[in-house]
Design a protein around this nucleic acid. Structure first.
Length: 808
RNA sequence: GCCAGUGUGGUGAAAUUGGUAUACACGUUGGAUUCAAAAUCCAAUGGCUUCACGGCCGUGCCGGUUCGACUCCGGCCACUGGUACCA
C-alpha cells in the first residue's frame, strides 16, 4: 500500500505550522540547542535544490535534538538587500520593496512545502527597517570606536553596475554580478578596520570545530606572515657629489632576513612616497612618471596577468645601502611590489626569490647565492629550509632556522631592524552606490565634519523613491533625493548633508544570528539574557564559498560587539560545516544557460517532500559536490513505500529475529547524523527496512523505534504512521531511541580463512570459541586442508572476530 | 605557481586503529504476478577464463613496507575548488 504524499504532507504541514510546533519555549532553564543555516537571498526564481541540501543537514539534527529533549532554536530569515532585486526593479519598474515582499512570500511557501522545522515566528528580513535599525546602530558603534573610516583610494569599479566593488566581489578582474571587466577609479570610500582584528580572527579559529580545509581557507585569507622590518639608508649618488650624503631611510618588510647578504637591489612600489619626497634628487623623474601612470591604469587583474613579464624603472640619483655589508645597491620602481602590503618596499634577493630572479635577469643585476643546495645559474633556489648559509659573513655555515635567530638579534643590536608581522587581509570596503541597501547613518557637516545620526533617530529609513537608477559617475541614487540629502547637523544644528552611500550586502548577514535570539525587541538589538541563553551557535552550516567572506566578516562584528560589552561570547560559532554543491545531471554547475537546473518543487509535487529530502541527503557525501540523478529519486520513494507497507505487519507479539540489526541501526544512525554522514545513515535505514520486510510480524514497540529514527529524515510519513498506530501526540514529543549494548553482540560470526593473504574459505564460529579450536577448525575444512596438503605453515595469524591467515 | 580536496563497477557511491573491495541505491537482464500495463516480489549483475568445480586479474599510474594495502610511505598523472607578483 502506497501513501498519498500530497495529502499526507499537506495535512502535517498545516498541523505543524498552524500549531507552531517548532517554536522555541521561553523557558530559559531547559538545555538549549542553536542550529543555524545561512539564510537565503530571496531571488525571483524561488528555491534551488542547493537550498534544500543546505538546510536538510541541520533540519535532521534539529528534529533529533528536539526528541532528545532540547529547546531547539532553528530559525530562518531573508538576506534581501542586494543588486539582483535592484536591477530587476530598474528593468521592470516594480519597486524593490514589492519585489522583495513577493519573493519572500514565495520562499516561505516553498520552505513550508518542504516541511522544514524552522521557527517561522522568528523570521528576520534584513530590509525591514526594524531590522536594519540595528545594522545601522552597529555601524554607529563601529564609527564611534574608530573602526569605520573614510579614505581616498583606488577602488575596483564596475562601469556597468556603476558601483565600487570589494576585492572579493571582483575576483578575476570581473564584476561578481555582471561579469563586466573592472576598472580602477579614485574614490573616497568607507572602510571597516577589520585588520585590527586580524590576529584575533586567526586566534579564534583554534576553538572552532570544523574541517581542516575550512580552517585553512580562513587562515590563508587572513594570511599572516612573520619576518622583519629592515632599515636601508638612502644616499644620493651624483658623480659630481663625492660626499654622497644620506638623505633618507627606507624600511622594507621581509620574511627572510637571513638572506640579507644576498640582497643586491631594492624595489619600491610606484606609489611609494620616496618618489615624491626626493623628486629633486632623482635624475630620471620623467621616465618614472610615465611608469607610474602606466601602473595606475592597470587593474589589479592586469598586474597579475602580466606577471610573467616584469617591468620597472631604475631610479637614477639614489642608491640604497645594504645595512649588513654597507654595499651600495640600486633602487627600482616596479609594479610587482604592492603599496598596500608590508611597507611597499622590498629588498630583492634574486638568488632565492623567483620574482626577484626574473627581474634581475631582465635588468642584468647581480645574483648572489646565500643558501647552498640549489643551482642559481638556472633558477632561484627557493626551497631553502634545508640549506646552509654561504657568502653571508657572520651567518656562514648556519642552517636557515639558526641564521634567522642570529640575524634577528644582529638587527636589533645594531638598531637597523626588528621582528615584524604582516597580514594579507585588507580593510573591508564598506559602501556601495546603490539604492537597495542600508543607508549609512552619517551626516556630513561643514563645521563638525562627519557626525553619526543620533541613536534615538535610528532607523534612518530608506526613503521611498520612484527612480533608483545610479547617478552619473557612480553617485548613489539617494543623492538625487533632496529631502533625504539635506538635513541638519546633530551637533551644531547647522545645515548639513547626509551620506548617500549604502552598506554592502554583507552587512545585514554579519549579525542576523544574534537577532534570531530576540527578533521582536525594539529597545535593543537583542537582550543580554536571551543572548546569554542561546549563544554560541552550536552548529552553523552553509556554503563553502562563504567560509572566507561572510564567516570572517560576521566573526569580526561579533568580536567587536564583545569588546563593547553587548554580546556575552568571544566567538559566535562553535561548529561549522559546509555542504557540497549539487551539480546538474551532466556534472556541470546548474545554470539557466545550460538548461540543467532541477526545480525542487516539481520533485515535491511528483514524489513528495520526504522523498526529495531523503534523496538529497542520500545522493552522496554531504560535504562533497555530486551530480543530480533523476532516477535516484525513485529509490528514495521506494524506500518510503516499503516503510509504509511495514505497517501491515505490526503486532503485539515480540520478535527476536531482528534485534541485533535494529539496535546496530539505532547506534549507526545516531553516530552518522552527528558526523554529517547522512548518506550512510539512510543506507543503513534502507538495510533495516529490507530486513524487516522479510519478517511475518513486527513488534509494535520495535516499529515505533523504527519510526523514531526515520522521523528526522521523513517527518511527514513517519508522523502519519505514528498516528495510525494510535498516537495522538506529535513525534516532536516522542523520545529519541537508545540502543541496547547487549543486543549489539552477535552470537555467531562468519570468519574468513585466508592463505598468504588470499581468501580461500569461510567458517562459522561462536563468539566463545578458543583461538586454538578456531585454528584447528580453519585447517580442517575441505578446501583449506586440500590447499595445505604437503605445505609447511610458516606462520598463523588470528585476528579475533575477523580472520585467520596461514602463511605457507 | 601555491594551498586544499577528489580519483573505486554501466551510474551515484560504501568500506579508518591495515584484515572478506564494491554496502545502500539507480540502471540492465531473466523470472513470478497481471487480460495487459504500472506497482510489487524473486534471482543475476567488476573484468577475463572454464562445460563445471574453480582459477587469474582488479580501487588513477609507478615503486616500497607488510602474512595482508582502497587504507601507510616515496615518486608521478588527471580533475575540481580556493588563492595569487603578499616580499
Amino acid at each position: 500500500m502506497e501513501y498519498n504524499h500530497q495529502k499526507v504532507e499537506k495535512k502535517w504541514q498545516k498541523h505543524w505550522y498552524e500549531n507552531k510546533r517548532f517554536s522555541v519555549t521561553e523557558d530559559l532553564t531547559k538545555p538549549k540547542y542553536y542550529s543555524l543555516v545561512e539564510f537565503p537571498y530571496p531571488s525571483g526564481v524561488g528555491m534551488h535544490v542547493g537550498h534544500i541540501r543546505a538546510y536538510s543537514s541541520l533540519e535532521i539534527v534539529s528534529r533529533k535534538r528536539r526528541m532528545q529533549g532540547y529547546n531547539v532554536l532553528f530559525p530562518i530569515g531573508f538576506d534581501a538587500f542586494g543588486l539582483p532585486t535592484e536591477n530587476y526593479a530598474i528593468q521592470t519598474g516594480i519597486h524593490p520593496r514589492q519585489v522583495t515582499d513577493k519573493n519572500i512570500a514565495v520562499f516561505t511557501e516553498q520552505l513550508q512545502a518542504t516541511g522544514f522545522s524552522f521557527d517561522f515566528d522568528r523570521v528576520v528580513d534584513t530590509t525591514d527597517e526594524k531590522y536594519y535599525h540595528w545594522t545601522q546602530w552597529i555601524f554607529v558603534q563601529l564609527f564611534k570606536n574608530g573602526l569605520a573610516f573614510r579614505d581616498k583610494t583606488y577602488v575596483n569599479y564596475c562601469p556597468s553596475c556603476k558601483v565600487v566593488l570589494s576585492n572579493e566581489d571582483s575576483q578575476g578582474g570581473k564584476c561578481d554580478r555582471c561579469d563586466t571587466p573592472v576598472v580602477q577609479k579614485e574614490k573616497d570610500v568607507w572602510f571597516l578596520r577589520i585588520t585590527n582584528y586580524a590576529e584575533r580572527l586567526l586566534e579564534g579559529l583554534k576553538e572552532l570545530d570544523t574541517l581542516p580545509r575550512i580552517r585553512i581557507e580562513q587562515e590563508n585569507w587572513i594570511g599572516k606572515s612573520t619576518g622583519a622590518h629592515v632599515d636601508f639608508k638612502i644616499k644620493t649618488c651624483e658623480t659630481t657629489d663625492t660626499s654622497k650624503s644620506v638623505v633618507d631611510n627606507i624600511t622594507v618588510y621581509t620574511t627572510r632576513p637571513d638572506t640579507l647578504f644576498g640582497a643586491t637591489f631594492m624595489v619600491i612600489a610606484p606609489e611609494h612616497e620616496l618618489l615624491v619626497k626626493h623628486h629633486n634628487q632623482i635624475q630620471n623623474m620623467k621616465d618614472i612618471h610615465v611608469y607610474q601612470e602606466q601602473a595606475k591604469m592597470k587593474t589589479e587583474f592586469e598586474r597579475v596577468e602580466l606577471a610573467k613579464d616584469k617591468t620597472g624603472v631604475r631610479i637614477d640619483g639614489l642608491v640604497a645601502i645594504n645595512p649588513v655589508n654597507q654595499k651600495e645597491i640600486p633602487i627600482f620602481v616596479a609594479d610587482y611590489v604592492m603599496i598596500g602590503y608590508g611597507t611597499g618596499a622590498i629588498m630583492a634577493v634574486p638568488g632565492h626569490d623567483t620574482r626577484d630572479y626574473e627581474f634581475a635577469k631582465k635588468f642584468g643585476l647581480d645574483i648572489i647565492e646565500v643558501i647552498s643546495g640549489g643551482d642559481i645559474s638556472k633558477e632561484a633556489y627557493t626551497d631553502t629550509y634545508e640549506g646552509t648559509l654561504v657568502n653571508s659573513d657572520i651567518l656562514n655555515g648556519l642552517c636557515v632556522a639558526d641564521a634567522k635567530e642570529k640575524i634577528a638579534q644582529f638587527l636589533e643590536d645594531n638598531k637597523i631592524g626588528q621582528k615584524a608581522t604582516n597580514y594579507k587581509m585588507k580593510d573591508w570596503a564598506f559602501n556601495r552606490q546603490r539604492y537597495w541597501g542600508e543607508p549609512i547613518p552619517i551626516i556630513h557637516c561643514p563645521k563638525c565634519g562627519m557626525v553619526p545620526v543620533n541613536e534615538a533617530d535610528l532607523p534612518l529609513v530608506l526613503p521611498p523613491m520612484e527612480h533608483f537608477e545610479p547617478g552619473e559617475d557612480g553617485q548613489s541614487p539617494l543623492a538625487n533625493n533632496p529631502e533625504f540629502l539635506h538635513t541638519t547637523c546633530p551637533v551644531c544644528g547647522g545645515e548639513a548633508t547626509r551620506e548617500t552611500d549604502t552598506m554592502p550586502q554583507w552587512a545585514g548577514s554579519s549579525w542576523y544570528f544574534l537577532r534570531y535570539t530576540d527578533p521582536h525587541n525594539d529597545k535593543e538589538f537583542a537582550s543580554m539574557d536571551k543572548l546569554k541563553y542561546w549563544l554560541e551557535v552550536d552548529w552553523y552550516n552553509g556554503g563553502m564559498e562563504h567560509v572566507t567572506r561572510h564567516v570572517i566578516y560576521s566573526r569580526f562584528w561579533h568580536q567587536f560587539l564583545y569588546d563593547i560589552g553587548v554580546v556575552p561570547t568571544k566567538e559566535p560559532y562553535k561548529k561549522r560545516t559546509a555542504q557540497g554543491m549539487i551539480l546538474g545531471e551532466d556534472g556541470d554547475k546548474m545554470s539557466k544557460s545550460k538548461g540543467n537546473v532541477v526545480n525542487p518543487m516539481e520533485i515535491i509535487k511528483e514524489y513528495g517532500a520526504d522523498t526529495l529530502r531523503l534523496y538529497i541527503l542520500f545522493i552522496g557525501d554531504y560535504e562533497q559536490s555530486t551530480p543530480w540523478n533523476p532516477n535516484g529519486v525513485k529509490g528514495a520513494r521506494r524506500f518510503l513505500d516499503k516503510l509504509a507497507r511495514l505497517e501491515e505487519k505490526v503486532s503485539d507479539k515480540p520478535n527476536q529475529n531482528y534485534q541485533t540489526i535494529l539496535h546496530k541501526t539505532i547506534k549507526a544512525v545516531d553516530e552518522d547524523i552527528e558526523n554529517v554522514k547522512f548518506n550512510t545513515a539512510i543506507a543503513k535505514l534502507m538495510t533495516l527496512i529490507n530486513e524487516l520486510g522479510k519478517e511475518n510480524h513486527i513488534n509494535i514497540k520495535d516499529y515505533e523505534t523504527v519510526l523514531a529514527i526515520t522521523y528526522p529524515f521523513a517527518p511527514h510519513l513517519c508522523e502519519e504512521l505514528w498516528q495510525k498506530i494510535g498516537h495522538s501526540e506529535d513525534m516532536v514529543f516522542a523520545s529519541w531511541p537508545e540502543y541496547d549494548e547487549t543486543k549489539l553482540i552477535e552470537t555467531s560470526i562468519e570468519l574468513v580463512v585466508s592463505i598468504n593473504g588470499k581468501v580461500r574459505d569461510k567458517i562459522n564460529i561462536t563468539i566463545d570459541m578458543a583461538k586454538d579450536d578456531i585454528l584447528q577448525l580453519a585447517k580442517s575444512t575441505e578446501k583449506i586442508s586440500e590447499l595445505l596438503k604437503n605445505q609447511t605453515i610458516k606462520k598463523e595469524i588470528y585476528v579475533p572476530n575477523k580472520l585467520v591467515n596461514f602463511v605457507i
